[in-house]
Design a protein around this nucleic acid. Structure first.
Ligand code: MN
Ligand code: MN
Ligand code: ZN
Ligand code: ZN
Lengths: 145, 145
DNA sequence: ATCCCAATTACGAATAATTCTTATATAAGA
DNA sequence: TCTTATATAAGAATTATTCGTAATTGGGAT
């Protein structure tokens, strides 16, 4: 059950020019789903648009991030990964491979929100709390996703 | 109140050769404290050892991470940052600059631990939970650390 | 429908970050 | 003190990303 996206609408809502390259990059991120790297995006898009320039993909990803259409994902690797899910959510990190799964839990969000309302952090105003939960997926023991 | 480190002991406890370069790199991370980049470490170490090779610093950082003497820090930037605090803790990310502050809260850790004991995640065994809390430090409004 | 132009893209060069290769040096155990 | 497996220095090679510039184009204006 993947969320439906009206890519052209999303771009125009941000007053971004609708170009074939932008549409394809955004489409790629939504289709691939699992937090792709820039390289993943380039490879994917080139399947339908073999001549797209790598520089263009870098540019577009930056534009999309600046306009909150996608997000950067924190990892311990030095390659950047992107996320088409812009609603606040958490991540499960596989300790055995580089798989990252989305984790949404509004009950937990509420617990945290309430906790920090009661227990403010000195000199710090919280904007967003994200959990990085690392562990092991039992399904794929010693096997990559 | 910085934690005292017996660097030579820490290295030998991991059966690592005690070399001046390793001692200085680890020392640098502890002294600088705030989650330095590789470049930060190189610059710092070169103040006392101007001829240390960049490649050597990269090697050493990798060795230290593998041996759990330091940790990598997740950020949205593509430069890696390192952390001399190996005990589990959370991070406050400044939205205005690249400052990262350690945040330790065992009460909160307990709340999370209890929560997930009651509410297991399907097919996933949690190893470690870290909060990435982003927001604003009131002290240095529109001013970098 | 056509025109226009600021915005975007393609391309390749430039830069930056990291890894690799190999000769030399050295920590630490015998 | 000797020995040797391990670590370092130096720089080349690779990889990732950014930059400069000329050509192209989306979409508003006419
Ligand atoms: Mn996600
Ligand atoms: Mn830390
Ligand atoms: Zn996995
Ligand atoms: Zn700051």
């Amino acid at each position: 059950m993947k969320k439906e996206h009206d890519i052209r609408y999303e771009l125009s809502a941000k007053k971004l020019k609708i170009t074939p390259q932008r549409v394809k990059v955004l489409e790629a991120i939504y289709e691939m789903d699992n937090h792709p790297t820039t390289e993943n995006v380039i490879d994917y898009v080139r399947k339908s648009d073999p001549n797209i320039s790598a520089g263009t993909v870098y540019n577009i990803l930056e534009v999309l991030v600046k306009n909150d259409l996608i997000k950067k994902v924190k990892t311990e690797k030095d390659v950047m990964r992107y996320d088409g899910m812009t609603e606040n959510h958490h991540h499960l990190y596989c300790k055995q491979c580089d798989y990252i799964e989305d984790y949404t839990n509004s009950e937990l969000d509420k617990i945290l929100k309430d906790y920090f309302e009661q227990n403010k952090i000195d000199n710090f105003i919280i904007d967003e709390i994200k959990l990085s939960i690392s562990g092991n997926f039992v399904i794929h023991k010693n096997k990559n996703h």
